[in-house]
């Protein structure tokens, strides 16, 4: 078994207009840069993108949005992306906001064969509007459906030809759960290692979830600003 493909271009042709794509990353951390850039070159349109947030202007999902390939964005947080805000306010892009944990759980459920689940999160808020309510232990819960993608774009640190993946630090974020919740899962990694090169006890995503894997190139891996400690 060998799930390795040469690069993002080798698989990106599978994506057709209107596809739903789960894209890992939190802010600009753990973003599948090679796959997103290949998708921009490939040009599929009317996409539904599921990602915690639409990234920053001109990078990652932000660049895909600027190229006007996204019809609908499912996210928990929009901050920091002015272009997206402009499109959303003009009604040119559809957005669906989910509480972050609900977003993660919707995909966890999809990956585990659970069609829907009850949660107290979002009850009585805009996130709970129109949802079935049921009480458990005297507390109201809302029914939320699972969320599955046609494709998942996953960024990991290391992987092998069977698709086993290891992430690095907080770059794991949504990547690991998205890897379980799509029909076709593509992983890009910074380094492909030989079978046996990953400690079996430390594999984060077992290869069974992954359909294709390649070694990415030219990672930008930017950081956003923040306070710094004084020496």
């Amino acid at each position: 078994m060998d799930k390795r493909v040469r690069n993002a271009e080798a698989v990106i042709g599978r994506i057709q207009d209107g596809a739903t794509i789960l894209a890992g990353g939190f802010g600009v951390c753990g973003v599948p840069e090679n796959l997103i850039n290949a998708l921009i070159r490939q040009g599929a349109k009317n996409l539904t993108i599921v990602s915690n947030n639409p990234g920053i202007d001109g990078f990652g999902i932000g660049a895909l949005i600027e190229n006007r390939q996204v019809r609908k964005m499912i996210a928990s947080y929009l901050g920091n992306n002015r272009f997206f805000e402009k499109l959303a306010l003009a009604g040119e892009i559809e957005m669906e906001l989910n509480p972050q944990g609900t977003l993660a759980e919707r995909m966890r459920a999809a990956g585990a064969g659970i069609p829907a689940f009850f949660t107290p999160t979002g009850y009585g808020t805009m996130a709970g509007e129109g949802r079935e309510v049921r009480e458990f232990g005297g507390r109201p819960h809302i029914l939320v459906p699972a969320l599955r993608g046609d494709f998942a774009f996953v960024k990991a640190w290391k992987g092998d030809r069977w698709g086993n993946l290891v992430y690095r630090k907080t770059a794991r974020n949504f990547n690991a759960v998205m890897a379980t919740a799509a029909d076709y899962v593509i992983a890009e990694v910074e380094q492909i290692v030989e079978l046996g090169g990953l400690d079996p006890d430390s594999v984060h995503t077992p290869g069974i979830f992954v359909d294709a894997i390649f070694e990415g190139t030219g990672y930008l891996k930017p950081t956003e600003p923040g306070p710094k400690r004084k020496r």
Binding site: F26, G27, C29, R168, A171
Partner: peptide, 10 residues
């Protein structure tokens, strides 16, 4: 770049 908090700060 692989290590940030929820406010996206390193």
């Amino acid at each position: 770049p692989d290590l940030i908090n929820a406010g996206k700060e390193p």
